[in-house]
């Protein structure tokens, strides 16, 4: 940033402070290790572009989808099994990627399904992250019986496959919800069950990092000046253990998306009238032998590309943020 720009910013702070600050950050970002590494990895660039495209598709889905596949009244059964890039033999309607057995436009269904996958994925990772980081921080910082309690629970949970735990939580939660609210509640139940099944990774990582950090001099210094435990944990230790959390969160996002798809594939996730990607794959699976390949192919490809791209991003982030691997 040039001197004149800095002067300008100082003169008219209300207007220029914001862009100037942004510009500054941007310049720093372009100069950073992360961007350097990003620039030099074509795989990461492709993965990043794909994730952005898919997220964009999910975001603007309701405005660009020709049909709302979650509104059964909009479906015309006679449009069922329309092949992609072709007209329906009875109604003459055209659907870009074809339709499923209920006459649901697959292109629209994929956009809406992506929304469910991403919302469930992101929110459940946030949920797992907040829970896992808090518990990990508390366990690592306080030690003693709190540590033992939290980490033994984590160990026990780790002995079960996380999908099993998600199913268990899903079953219990579903039983608790009144029948007429199940459809609306399904997505929240998914978030809670996937979130609760994935917090352990966060907690273990953060606890380990906290154990290291709490012995460091800056923490002792903070203690000496009389700061309480809370502020020390939040203002000093937490920022220093967040690096690995970011990596786990990215990889966790891919896992959560797959977990959601798996639950829906097994028929216990998103309701059949509001299909997510996993539900669409489950529907398509019934038509594997009968020639309607598009019903399973397009949703599976979308899920594959999404999960793979997020995973690649996570791997790259881990490499960048972990100097020991370089």
């Amino acid at each position: 940033m040039s001197d004149s720009a800095r002067e300008q910013a100082a003169q008219t702070p209300e207007i220029a402070a914001e862009p100037g600050w942004l510009k500054d950050k941007w310049a720093r970002f372009l100069d950073s290790d992360i961007y350097y590494s990003f620039k030099r990895s074509p795989v990461t660039i492709v993965a990043f572009t794909l994730v952005v495209l898919l997220m964009l598709g999910a975001l603007v889905g309701p405005w660009i989808a020709p049909q709302n596949p979650h509104d059964p009244a909009q479906l015309n059964l006679m449009d069922g099994f329309t092949a992609p890039f072709a007209e329906n033999q009875f109604t003459g309607n055209f659907y870009l990627l074809g339709t499923d057995d209920q006459g649901r436009d697959l292109f629209s269904a994929i956009l809406y399904g992506l929304r469910i996958s991403l919302i469930v994925g992101i929110v459940s990772v946030l949920f797992a992250g907040v829970l896992g980081v808090t518990l990990g921080l508390v366990a690592g910082f306080f030690g003693g019986w709190i540590d033992t309690l939290i980490m033994r629970i984590a160990d026990i949970q780790l002995t079960f496959p996380s999908i099993l735990i998600a199913m268990l939580i899903y079953g219990v939660a579903r039983g608790l919800v009144p029948v007429d609210m199940r459809d609306e509640a399904a997505i929240y139940i998914l978030i809670v069950s996937i979130g609760l099944s994935e917090w352990v990774q966060f907690a273990r990582t953060v606890r380990g990092a906290t154990l290291v950090e709490r012995e460091k001099e800056y923490v002792q210094a903070a203690r000496l000046i009389g700061l309480g435990r809370g502020p020390i944990m939040l203002r000093h230790v937490l920022p220093n253990v967040m690096g690995p959390v970011l990596v786990i969160a990215t990889i966790g996002l891919a896992l959560a998306i797959i977990a959601e798809a798996t639950l829906s594939f097994l028929g216990v996730g998103a309701p059949p009238t509001q299909p997510s990607l996993g539900t669409l794959i489950r529907i398509g699976q019934d038509f594997l032998f009968s020639g309607e390949w598009w019903i399973i192919l397009f949703p599976s490809m979308t899920l594959l590309v999404l999960a793979l791209s997020v995973n690649l991003l996570g791997d790259w982030l881990r490499d960048v943020l972990n100097p020991k691997l370089r």
């Binding site: 059964p72 909009q74 479906l75 209920q102 199940r182 059949p272 009238t273």
Partner: peptide, 21 residues
């Protein structure tokens, strides 16, 4: 699949049906 189709048909006359299969 029949139930899902009927959910759609009921939707066309204003009955909003949640399906529990």
């Amino acid at each position: 699949a029949i139930c899902q189709a009927v959910v759609g048909m009921m939707g066309q006359i204003g009955i909003d049906v949640a399906l529990d299969a």
